[in-house]
Design a protein around this nucleic acid. Sequence first.
RNA 1: CGGGGCGUAGCGCAGCCCGGUAGCGCGCUUCGUUCGGGACGAAGAGGUCGGAGGUUCGAAUCCUCUCGCCCCGACCA
Length: 483
Amino acid sequence: MSQQDKFVEDITDKDDDFSKWYNEVVRKAELADYGPVRGTMIIRPYGYALWENIQKRLDARFKEVGIENAYFPLLIPKSFLEREAEHVEGFAPEVAWVTRGGGEELEEPLAIRPTSETIIGNAYAKWVQSYRDLPILINLWNNVMRWEKRTTLFLRTSEFLWQEGHTAHRTLEEAEERTLQMLEVYRQLAEEDLAMPVVTGQKTEQEKFAGALRTYSIEALMGDGKALQAGTSHNLGSNFARSFDIMFLDSDGQRKYCSTTSWGASTRLIGGLIMTHGDNAGLIMPPKVAPIQVVIVPIWRKVEEKAKVAEAVERIGQMLKGADIRFKADWREETPGWKYNEWEMRGVPIRLEVGPRDVQNNSAMLVRRDNRAKEPVPLEILLTRLPEMLNEIQQALFERALKFREEKTTEVDNYEDFKQVIAEKRGFVKVRWTEDRAAELAIKEETKATIRNIPLDQSGFTPGPALYTGKPATGYALFARAY
RNA sequence: CGGGGCGUAGCGCAGCCCGGUAGCGCGCUUCGUUCGGGACGAAGAGGUCGGAGGUUCGAAUCCUCUCGCCCCGACCA
């Protein structure tokens, strides 16, 4: 039993049973609960506040690159979904249908959107006439429904919240540029805001989005050595434009199909955040998105002490408000020790203790969630020290996660080693590769590992035989077992 | 949708095999003492035992059906 285990006795050890640990953390930290319908999720206020912070950050990043928000309907006519062949084939098994309305059978069943490419395509076809109407750069913050066979809170639920961006362009090159730009936005969100290191890369033909020309993803490595796809960006080429007739008259007098893109990131990011940073005491929230960045725990014995402490807490509260730091003063009738454990479990980055001794010294005791380091801080420098410490924690979380990923990334050059690493060490396995769908499936069949992506960063690549097939490799591929 | 497990108080569980009218821990309420790493005492509240049907004098317990959840597989953000 490690040092920190004695602080929290009621959470399953991560190393004993990771998925049990995950479920307990989600529920005990009050992030989410199960809904009454199979596979549905209630996002509780603490979890939703986290989502709002992620939204706020991502939305700001979208706006910086010219994206506007809009809203599209929940219900999609069946005929729309059927327009793009690969798309319908990919999504058909998991679509939920509305067949009755107003007490009557509907003439055409309506799909509860699993994603909005089709209804977007229908609208864009109307909106685009000229090359001057392009590009269209729209994002939707909404919910979608996919009838999943097997669900896990935040990682896979039948209904989930996400954003889906949909753009239309004059040329394929421009669409490709936008696809990669949005992938980069996701990388920045993951790494800078969520402190979650990711590998950017391209999906194989086997793993790409149904109906896409090319799919890119960011892939993160979770605490149990499994990979999580944390965001995707698709270059749809002219596939949807052809199915929905999104055409424009170009400056050369030719009528042409648009090239479109779509890209999405979901509440799954919350699952990723939990599994990236959490420890045996519970959650650890990256400061930039933490619903509560600082929790103030007052400590007192006597009534007159309580009054003085209350006064100090009030003063500190005023300071933090002015400094735009998200905080909460915990005046519940519990012992300080109990509160320490509670807030550690819920992942608040900094605990600020105010007791009689601190009042006397005109200071506060700061305790970091990530390493439990204690630091007495005079109140006059609190407003410079707190933001600094929040940054230090943000940085430390990222570095710890990056170090973990690097330790768990193994380069192998033969299939025997590959199988062993996947089975025992887990993590990312980097191999020489050349596109081969049959080999990919065979490897998946035997080892459960899939190609997470073909990393954009191919530095260090040297020619040699590809894994499994032995054909000349075209680059590195990143394998892992995935969520 | 296949294989396994589980539905008993808000949460975690025992009781079921061998039928006799429901219990433990935590939490909750009130009062008092506590409070710098999950405090203690006393007194309380809380359950149509997932649902339906059957067997029986009597069902949480036995039988049948059904609904739901969790885990492992096949499908996926």
